[in-house]
Every structure is written in structure tokens, then in C-alpha cells.
Design a binder for these strands. Structure first.
Length: 115
DNA sequence: CACGTGACCCTAT
DNA sequence: TATAGGGCCACGT
């Protein structure tokens, strides 16, 4: 049973986008977090895919540390090889399979200020 | 209106 | 740890 709305109004979509950008801007250097976690934090647990869409298509998102966002197993964004370079420059370590070592760099903010 | 397509996630195997 | 299958939701065609 979901205790959250399952569809966004345009106004909610704008708020969601702002929350996502706000959260991403708070990821510390050398740490990473996941799409799903960001979505849940913004109050829309089932919208992890929308987080990726937001970062991809929102103008100005490239000025945020969006390279610190990976999926749940630490895989980097497809077609964006530079992401790995940026992370490595911050000291993030990768495993032999090409995934970020999540057990070491996952960032889980307790309760970022939103709204 | 019906499909296909993702910077995704969960569970089972 | 790696794969496979199903679920999910906004968008374009």
C-alpha cells in the first residue's frame, strides 16, 4: 500500500526537480549517492528514473556535482565516461567490475533541509 | 490512445 | 557477484 501520490501535477514536478537539484548540490566531495535514494528523499520513492531524467535534461544541472550520482550498485551513467574520471579525481575508488565501491563512498544524508 | 524508451529499482535464482 | 524478469513513470511518436 503506497501512502504517497502516484502521479505528479506539473507544480509537483517542478518541486520535485528543485528538491533533486537541492539534494545533489549537497553531496560532499569524494562521496556518491543513488537515484533511488534522492527520489525517496524528495518524497517520491517510485520516481528514481525521474531523477536521472531531471539531471540529464535540466539546463544548469552540469554545474552541480551530478557526477556523484550513480545507481544502486555503483554503475555510472551510460554514455558519460567522463563521470568516472571526475569521481576518481576526488578519490572515489572503483571495483574491478567498473562499479563504484559503494560500501566505501555511499553518502546517506540524515535529513537535508528541504522546502 | 497505444507503444517504445530510458543517467532506475527490487526480488529471485 | 552476475543475470533475468517485472515494475515503475514521464515523454516522444
Amino acid at each position: 500500500m503506497k501512502d504517497y501520490p502516484d502521479r505528479m501535477t506539473p507544480a509537483q514536478a517542478r518541486m520535485f526537480r528543485d528538491d533533486v537539484l537541492n539534494i545533489v548540490s549537497q553531496i560532499p566531495r569524494g562521496r556518491v549517492t543513488t537515484y533511488g535514494y534522492i527520489a525517496a528523499l524528495a518524497g517520491w520513492p517510485s520516481h528514481s528514473r525521474m531523477v536521472g531524467r531531471t539531471l540529464r535534461y535540466t539546463p544548469g544541472a552540469e554545474q552541480l556535482p551530478c557526477h556523484r550520482v550513480v545507481n544502486q550498485v555503483g554503475r555510472t551513467a551510460p554514455g558519460w565516461s567522463r563521470q568516472r574520471t571526475l569521481l576518481e579525481e576526488e578519490g572515489v575508488t572503483f571495483k574491478a567490475n567498473g562499479h563504484v565501491d559503494m560500501s566505501r563512498h555511499l553518502w546517506e544524508p540524515s535529513d537535508p533541509f528541504l522546502r
